[in-house]
């Protein structure tokens, strides 16, 4: 172990948990729940307004989930003891990487529909299509994750969960939320794609039920 790493480990294990450390972990919870919230909005359009997501929409959902996996790992680690600086940085670094790639996907879909008279794909929310909101959300997520990294000296959670029953309950809730959204997206995608390798660029039905003759 290098001197710098040893120093960091020694400081972490002896430092008392302050409010800023607890807020850092709450921020990870907010990040995961917030990204799952955007997926809930997509579900409203899919199941509430009966609009079918295109392949690009599904790809953006994947990157939302992948970006949330990093902070979810930080939360999971916090239930087992102290979150090291290495784990904190690794989780947020992953979140930034997935969010930036997701933003490229969203920006590509914006460019696909930007030339008039293209009306854009599917419905709009407050005048912006969902892929435009997704681009804003991805960029916001990347900035938020980068801020968490920048604030590491104050915000790394240390042993915050061990000292807080509320954070322990929140960890169970947040990890359940991301699991539910990952599993439900898998089921929804399977129903949309059916037993096929390709998904239509502009789906008009749930292929699984169509293939069954329903």
């Amino acid at each position: 172990m290098s001197t710098a790493t040893a120093t960091t480990a020694r400081i972490s294990s002896t430092s008392p948990v302050r409010l800023s450390n607890r807020l850092g972990l709450w921020f990870a919870h907010a990040y995961v729940v917030g990204l799952c919230g955007t997926l809930a909005g997509a579900y409203f359009f899919q199941f509430g307004l009966w609009e079918y997501p295109c392949p690009m929409c599904l790809l953006q959902r994947m990157f939302f989930l992948l970006s949330a996996v990093g902070p979810a790992w930080i939360i999971a680690r916090s239930r087992k003891g102290e979150v090291t600086t290495r784990a904190w940085a690794s989780g947020w670094g992953w979140a930034i990487m997935a969010a930036l790639i997701g933003s490229v996907v969203s920006a590509t879909q914006v460019l696909m529909h930007i030339v008039p008279p293209d009306p854009g794909y599917a419905g709009a929310l407050f005048g912006l299509h969902l892929y435009t909101w997704a681009l804003i959300a991805f960029l916001g997520a990347a900035v938020a994750a980068a801020a968490a990294l920048f604030l590491t000296p104050r915000a790394e959670p240390l042993n915050a969960t061990a000292a807080s029953p509320l954070l322990r309950k929140a960890a169970t809730f947040t990890l359940a939320v991301i699991t539910v959204f990952a599993a439900s997206n898998l089921v929804a995608c399977f129903l949309l794609e059916g037993i096929n390798w390709q998904l239509s660029g502009d789906p008009t039905s749930y292929q699984f039920f169509t293939d069954l003759g329903l």
Partner: peptide, 20 residues
């Protein structure tokens, strides 16, 4: 193909929960 990708993502979440 997309179903398989979502399956992989669910596995990623399970790896977090099961502390692989």
């Amino acid at each position: 193909m997309y179903t398989l990708l979502f399956l992989l993502i669910l596995l990623c979440v399970m790896a977090v929960l099961r502390d692989w």
